[in-house]
Design a protein around this nucleic acid. Structure first.
Ligand SMILES: [Mn+2]
Ligand SMILES: [Mn+2]
Ligand SMILES: [Mn+2]
Ligand SMILES: [Mn+2]
Lengths: 216, 216
DNA sequence: CTTCCATATTAGGTACACCTAACTCTAGGT
DNA sequence: ACCTAGAGTTAGGTGTACCTAATATGGAAG
């Protein structure tokens, strides 16, 4: 059951993430996300289908139970690695992604458990995403985008769908991090910016940025 | 200067270790150490020579300055990983080798420095081997094998040249770990066992085991 | 109904890192 | 002097994971 290559893990992880908003995942979106050519992905998808890790129909690819379970294991390792980097080694949240993307393929089940225990079984990564437990159970919180809120609505930031370090740095500089309360002051029409209030300060946020911040 | 594959790193690391006791390293010993066929090693050695990482003469291979410097970087990452595993995650010294052998290829210079700092810049790995500093400076302590001691000689264990988990477990069970003082009670002739005294107990040690324990 | 575009695949090729089988070469033993 | 063991290389081949160029294919727009 084990013994997959880093690349196989990378594909499964990407598919799992992409199928959150596009159910059967198209190979072109997958290629784009993995930064690979369409034929490379096409070929690899065929191999993964042969190994029983996904099914491939005209609509796109869907992970099998086995594929999903490996994907969640990789995501668990990624997020636990991120926590180790921030909580133990003092990384900032904008520095952890690439490092964790390599570590996730190098750590064993044993190490995965040890990290989790040492950190007191954290429930989320530094960006607020839930860490699947060791049996692959992933609690999905009911969240919406900050961009969906109306003037005078409030929300508590749960997570941030963003990996770009510059964007993460920017968000952190405004205090837009998990567990912080945000109040919407004003929403400009025609997809314009939102004025939000965070820990006493007011900022104008682009809709694109706001859509990546999930609140409850 | 960076951007080597895990395999290249593995070769350089092995060559560096082997050239401690056999100066120009023969490709056959290298193949044996890496558990690869002789032709595979022969081929790879040619590539590494082309990249300027080693020179290849009739006597064997010798690392160039660049090859040595990469090798020491990998060894530094390996030993720092081992320390992270034991000191932060609670691994025993017999559990760390394989894990560290994967981690050493996944961690960045940044992470390397952060681990070192977080642990207070440790000077040795859990087995007592020195950790090269970030500029590749490696302090070599003047040690000899426990097996070279005569009856009534004493020594303090510096390091243990052993990776096999069962052997390491055995040594730890007798208290044969770095910084411990050992006294030789008796040396049986014809390469027979040595009777040693460690923290109040006496044990009979095979010569093979004793030769792997370095003392000062 | 045709044209065109996005999506996907096929065809053919590369780099990397491994393998076995077969060959060469050299130093020692008899 | 001759034979042989060990060390090393050459030759030929495999699997993985990527690439570009060319080729289908299924709608939307004209
Ligand atoms: Mn990854
Ligand atoms: Mn994260
Ligand atoms: Mn390694
Ligand atoms: Mn060690």
């Amino acid at each position: 059951m084990e013994a997959d290559t880093p690349r196989v893990e990378e594909y499964l992880e990407s598919i799992y993430k992409l199928q959150q908003d596009q159910y059967p995942v198209s190979t072109s979106r997958l290629a784009e996300h993995l930064k690979l050519s369409a034929p490379s992905v096409s070929e690899m998808v065929k191999k993964l289908a042969n190994r029983g890790l996904l099914s491939h129909t005209e609509k796109g690819v869907c992970l099998t139970e086995e594929g999903k379970s490996i994907a969640k294991k990789v995501i668990r390792r990624h997020r636990l690695s991120e926590r180790l980097l921030t909580d133990v080694l003092g990384y900032r949240w904008d520095e952890v992604h690439d490092e964790a993307c390599r570590l996730e393929h190098a750590i064993s089940s044993e190490m995965e458990e040890r990290i989790s225990e040492s950190l007191g079984n954290p429930r989320t990564c530094p960006h607020g995403h839930p860490i699947p437990d060791k049996d692959g159970v992933l609690v999905k919180e009911n969240v919406k985008s900050l961009s969906e809120l109306k003037a005078s609505d409030r929300g508590i930031i749960v997570s941030v769908f963003e990996e770009d370090p510059r964007m993460l740095k920017y968000m952190a500089s405004l205090g837009l991090i998990p567990d912080v309360c945000v109040r919407v002051e004003e929403v400009a029409p025609f997809g314009g910016p939102m004025i939000v209030c965070v820990s006493g300060s007011r900022y104008a946020l682009g809709r694109e940025v706001a859509s990546r911040i999930k609140v409850k």
